[in-house]
Design a binder for these strands. Structure first.
Length: 494
RNA sequence: GGUCUCGUGGCCGAGUGGCUAGGCAGCGGUCUGCAAAACCGCCUACAGCGGUUCGAAUCCGCUCGAGACCUCCA
């Protein structure tokens, strides 16, 4: 394979030390990767696309540089409480009651929708996609272990993790930088806290009150698992007690990931994760986009353009390209102008990728340092997945391709071959961009267009510009654009 | 209130001590019947103030501004 000549010194930013580190998997060539997936109780929105695309890029790149990756991304269908206390109602259950549906019906509906949206974004399916509700047994087993080791206590039928005891011998806050004293002192008065010994403690298992629909039998009565259990239980089941990468949104850093570490350290005897990776948030007008803020635009909204904030529809590939043009650890601010800029840039890139198959190489041509461009793109990827810089290098190649096409430069066969490889690998395989034109009638359309272009050409030859312009304008009305060049006329959809 | 992050040209967005990404928009040119596309050229920024240094967007301090987390959220 082409890329094996290039040294791969992949570094990733590890939230654990806030530093970039050389990536060394525990058992090469295998890599275990776990990413927090969606809670399936509502429409997939722009915020869901960020981690999905970020870790899709990582998944693709790890495979490309030769690793065998097991990528686990969960579906959360139980366990997240609605309100700000442990008295809250389960999200899935609340939605189910609202719509008079079975909880599993809600889960199914939104899971399918999530998958459909991710498919359109060309996000690869993970290797394993476990459901929290399908791993109640594993979660109960893990709670039992923590109880046996004395780091959890039972209170009114629920089981809580004893953060204060844990802190005496371990570092609660190792990930988030949170200090226990601050946690204990700054926490507000919340209802339902009286079951806990300390406000910083978190639930491992919650007793279900009589009205609660989602409930499972356990050694402590009927209930449901606590907020953070599923990820710990499922990641250790499928990836082992210690695995390479755990990803998710930055907002999950505390308390979710911090608590996962504490649970796993007690239950399994060691820190679960070697590299913690967190993507940053998507903002809208500078403010975080979130369901609770009422400014979450669904992916469907973007694809159809049917939202007051949107001036037009934005295709899945535009959304994907837009996200990849920013580094995953930066916030990304949404706006119509930014999306439109991305749309045009993507079009220019894909046009050039198409052109590269048309241009002719010449053995006598001057040489271009295309290998350096390709190398720079790899270096960018190795530098904590710097996709914006990789894309910048792609545009360097775009300029070269266009300039050869224009006849300003000629190109050597070897250089052309490198360029083709470069586009193929980076644009399609790694960045996961794809041509969106999946028209079944493409051949028919091509034939029709050929005829129309010929007729127009004849009109132009006899200087009948009224006719030639009419053809062009009419086609423009149905979003087909004609472009007259030296080699003749080509067309494309706008 | 506590913890943390950030402030880059008209817009988006890379860049963590010297070599001044990239995209979009704009301007000038080439090409063209006109247009579009493409190509060439131009626009050369780092919130403010002070400090460290031969040299700072990049390190340190202060000020101002924005955001995140502390509570379900990707």
């Amino acid at each position: 394979m082409q890329h094996q000549q290039i040294t791969h010194q992949l570094t990733v930013y590890n939230s654990l030390n806030r530093k970039k580190e050389l990536f060394n998997p525990l058992k090469p060539p295998f890599v275990g990767m776990y990413v927090c997936g969606p809670t399936v109780y509502g429409d997939a929105h722009l915020g869901h696309a960020r981690p999905a695309i970020t870790f899709d890029l990582l998944f693709r790149y790890l495979k490309h540089i030769g690793y065998s990756v097991r990528y686990v991304r969960n579906i959360t269908d139980v366990g997240h409480l609605e309100s700000d206390s442990d008295e809250g109602e389960d999200k899935i259950e609340k939605k189910a009651r609202l719509e008079q549906l079975e909880p599993m019906e809600v889960v199914n509906f939104y899971t399918i929708q999530y998958h459909r949206m991710m498919d359109r974004l060309n996000v690869l399916r993970p290797s394993i996609e476990p459901y929290a509700s399908g791993h109640i047994v594993e979660q109960i087993e893990m709670v039992k272990k923590i109880l046996e080791k004395g780091y959890a206590y039972q209170s009114s039928g629920s089981i809580y993790f004893d953060v204060v005891k844990y802190s005496q011998s371990h570092h609660y806050g190792i990930l988030s930088g949170r200090k226990l004293d601050d946690l204990l002192s700054s926490t507000r008065e919340l209802s339902g806290q009286d079951e806990k010994r300390n406000s910083a403690d978190f639930a491992l298992w919650k007793k279900a009150d009589p009205l609660h629909i989602m409930r499972w039998p356990s050694p402590w009565g009927e209930g449901f698992p606590g907020w953070h259990m599923e990820c710990s239980a499922m990641s250790s089941k499928y990836l082992g007690k210690e695995f390479d990468i755990h990803g998710g949104g930055m907002d999950l850093l505390f308390p979710h990931h911090e608590s996962e570490i504490a649970q796993s350290v007690i239950a399994n005897g060691k820190p679960p994760v070697r590299y913690w990776m967190h993507n940053n948030m998507v903002t809208i007008n500078g403010q975080k986009m979130g369901k609770s803020l009422g400014n979450a635009l669904s992916l469907e909204d973007f694809f159809t353009g049917s939202h007051p904030l949107l001036e037009q529809a934005y295709s899945p590939m535009v959304i994907r390209f837009f996200m990849l043009q920013a580094h995953y650890r930066s916030t990304l601010d949404f706006s119509n102008a930014a999306l439109q800029a991305a749309e045009k840039g993507l079009k220019r890139l894909l046009n050039a990728v198409r052109e590269v198959d048309q241009i002719k190489a010449e053995i006598s041509a001057e040489r271009h340092d295309v290998v350096s461009i390709q190398k720079a793109a790899y270096e960018a990827m190795n530098d904590d997945l710097n996709s914006p810089v990789a894309i910048a290098n792609l545009f360097e190649a775009v300029r070269l391709v266009n300039s050869v096409k224009e006849g300003h430069h000629r190109i050597h066969p070897e250089d052309l071959e490198v360029l083709k490889q470069f586009f193929e690998v980076f644009v399609f395989e790694l960045l996961g961009l794809s041509e969106e034109d999946e028209n079944q009638d493409q051949e028919l359309v091509n034939g029709l267009m050929e005829t129309i272009i010929q007729l127009r050409q004849q009109a132009r030859q006899r200087k009948d510009y009224a006719t030639s312009d009419l053809i062009r304008d009419k086609l423009a009305e149905i979003n087909i654009q004609l472009k007259d060049g030296k080699e003749g006329t080509v067309w494309e959809r706008k």
